[in-house]
């Protein structure tokens, strides 16, 4: 973590976390208070990363996955139970398109490879996907994956949840001006000290380092999903990392979708579901009553309330 004073009353900390670039910016308080708040937020982020990482074998998620098919249910804490409830709700509302058990598709999809997987490879994995088959007992907070090889992960919203938690920690520390940005998923603490909003750019989906639109936000959250984060391109066809759990193939239709919502968790989940819904994405976002911005396959930008 390398905090740097950006202007006398603004403090910016940048560090790598959850495989992305994290930025915390706070303003309107003296450097000591800001520093203490940023450190508390940073340790909260590391806590969430350690707890929900699927790469760390001792993480809770790894323990749940390791027990898949064994018939043994894993008891989870209240925080994890809340996240599983959210996943269940999202699964239902997206008609199965948002599924935290779809991570098994990574076994077939290697975005560093020269070719997409063969259809047989994907067909083999599809039976392992299905949140509706997961045995989640809310009242006893016990979860069991019914089949060996099944797995769940919180990659679909862990980063957004972490951004919201870090912001809550900063606000609790008395910091009311600034934001947390985890790799483009942004949660605000509040506007600048003089009440003016912060301004954010939306990443250009085809030109790294360029932006396509700017917007001003003083509160709430902003998240963007795009087909440019991880992908492979073969014969002019782009295969992005947002995979449809029903077909096993990537979402098409949108280069990127950005959503503004009070919580980063909601904004991030909505962008992913909208990407997966393809043509039906904008109608879904309208029903969810959130401002959004889309860039379609031809690179055409459309803003609705954002």
């Amino acid at each position: 973590m390398s905090p740097a004073a950006g202007g006398a009353e603004e403090l910016v900390a940048r560090f790598g976390l959850m495989a992305c670039q994290a930025e915390i910016r706070v303003a309107g308080v003296d450097a000591d208070a800001a520093q203490a708040g940023i450190e508390a937020a940073h340790s909260e982020l590391r806590r969430i990363e350690a707890k929900y990482s699927r790469y760390q074998s001792d993480s809770l998620v790894s323990r749940i996955n390791a027990a898949a098919g064994s018939g043994v249910a894993v008891t989870v804490d209240e925080e994890t139970a809340g996240l599983l409830d959210f996943a269940a709700s999202l699964h239902q509302q997206s008609e199965g398109l948002f599924d935290i058990s779809s991570g098994v598709l990574r076994r077939a999809w290697n975005f560093r490879a020269a070719q997409p997987p063969r259809p047989e490879q994907i067909a083999e994995l599809l039976p392992l996907i299905g949140w509706s088959r997961v045995d989640w007992n809310r009242s006893q907070r016990r979860i069991a994956l019914p089949q060996a090889g099944m797995e769940i992960d919180f990659g679909g919203f862990g980063k957004e949840y972490a951004a919201d938690r870090a912001a809550a920690v900063l606000v609790a520390a008395g910091l009311h001006h600034g934001y947390v940005n985890l790799g483009g998923d942004i949660r605000l603490l509040g506007p600048r000290p003089d009440g003016r909003p912060w301004s954010f750019g939306i990443q250009h989906p085809r030109q790294a380092g360029a932006t396509v639109a700017g917007l001003a936000l003083g509160s709430g959250a902003l998240a963007t999903s795009g087909d440019y984060e991880r992908y492979l391109e073969v014969d002019g066809r782009r295969y992005c990392h947002i995979l449809n759990p029903r077909t096993g193939w990537p979402a098409r239709c949108w280069q990127s979708v950005s959503v503004q919502a009070p919580l980063c968790l909601a904004a991030g989940a909505l962008t992913t579901v909208a990407m997966l819904m393809e043509e039906a994405g904008p109608a879904f976002l309208r029903r969810q009553n959130v401002p959004f911005l889309t860039i379609n396959e031809r690179g055409e930008l459309r803003r609705e309330g954002l």
């Binding site: 509040g190 506007p191 009440g195 909003p197 003083g218 509160s219 709430g220 009070p262 919580l263």
Partner: peptide, 12 residues
């Protein structure tokens, strides 16, 4: 507006 929807109302 609910508590988290007051960003605009708070503008100068």
């Amino acid at each position: 507006p609910l508590p988290w929807e007051k960003g605009i109302l708070a503008r100068p």
